[in-house]
Nucleic acid binder design. Sequence first.
DNA 1: TTTATCATGTAAGTTGTTACATGATTCG
DNA 2: CGAATCATGTAACAACTTACATGATAAA
Lengths: 192, 192
Amino acid sequence: MAEKKTLDYVILAGLIRKPRSGYDLTKWMERETSHFFVVGHSSIYPALARMEREGLVRYEVVASERGPKRKVYSITEVGRVTLLSWAQEPAVEREVRDEQLVKTLCYGFLPEEMVLERLQQEKERHQRKLEMYEGFERGLQAQLREGVISQEAYLGTLLTLRRGIGTEKGYAAWCDEAAEMISSATPSRTNS
Amino acid sequence: MAEKKTLDYVILAGLIRKPRSGYDLTKWMERETSHFFVVGHSSIYPALARMEREGLVRYEVVASERGPKRKVYSITEVGRVTLLSWAQEPAVEREVRDEQLVKTLCYGFLPEEMVLERLQQEKERHQRKLEMYEGFERGLQAQLREGVISQEAYLGTLLTLRRGIGTEKGYAAWCDEAAEMISSATPSRTNS
DNA sequence: TTTATCATGTAAGTTGTTACATGATTCG
DNA sequence: CGAATCATGTAACAACTTACATGATAAA
């Protein structure tokens, strides 16, 4: 039915791993999918309610150890089939909205020092993310060894994490490349 | 005023290079910004009309060599200041919506052969994009040599193009990495 | 004359965000 | 007892997308 909504499939991909509440899903997305898909909690709760009506997921109300009661959702057989048959079709183009690169379009019109400073900040941001993802990767491997997650769940998460690591390394390298190009392109722009 | 709308700044970044019509801007975005920002023409025309009211751009109606009359927009001094002062502030996090990676989350739950085929297709897609961007880069260098574009405009466009090239190379490399991880993780999954 | 490209727009619908709103439990 | 975290939602708004709509000019 729903030909589009990627969010639905992200939720199903979260639930095929293990049952989770809306709160858990929000945290999981922030942690493990934020480099390729992120939405706020206010999108997740209505989506879960609709998907429950559609029969893709079901829930149980469970008392929490700390905090109020939770609605713990799990994937249904219908949800499983829906997810996996979608996953085997080719993906549509990825959407990117990168403000940094829009600003970069203007770097020829701005003072060199300022631009180099921004590129340095941007590089540090990507290095921090890189370290974070590398930490997640070690944690994930530990989870597999301890049998906390299945082999099936491990593989997909590892692969996306590797993509996150590659992306951050590539972006940080670009920051260096860009800084070098700017420095060599205008060796004395501040003297003009 | 408008604290957010990245589209406005993309349009201004297009017009600071040279005056362009809505149609030209659409083509320019498809060609040169599509790897980090893309919208359809139906967003551009209303934005230009609003920005004209706000004094960021102005237009002249010019007869086209081929086709109907064009509204050729140029950036105003107010638009220039607005753009360049925005460009020197740090950028917000880039937004990514990558369906391929959502599908990748499911790759442990799918047959190995099918997944390897998808990864091969995805790799080819990125290789084609890479070739396209490398062609754009050569064209851009030629434009600079021929004096068609200014040094200021050249630098920013080159830098974003270099990022596009790095991104496509990185994604293609990930496809190989992922394929190898899958093959070695499950040497005989088809036999199970 | 029909197709492709040039050229500009509007209207309806989708999908999200931000802000608002509530309330439980635990830790310091 | 106040702050942090846990937990779930709604309402208003923003920013797009898709489809609709029109029309000029040129080449085949």
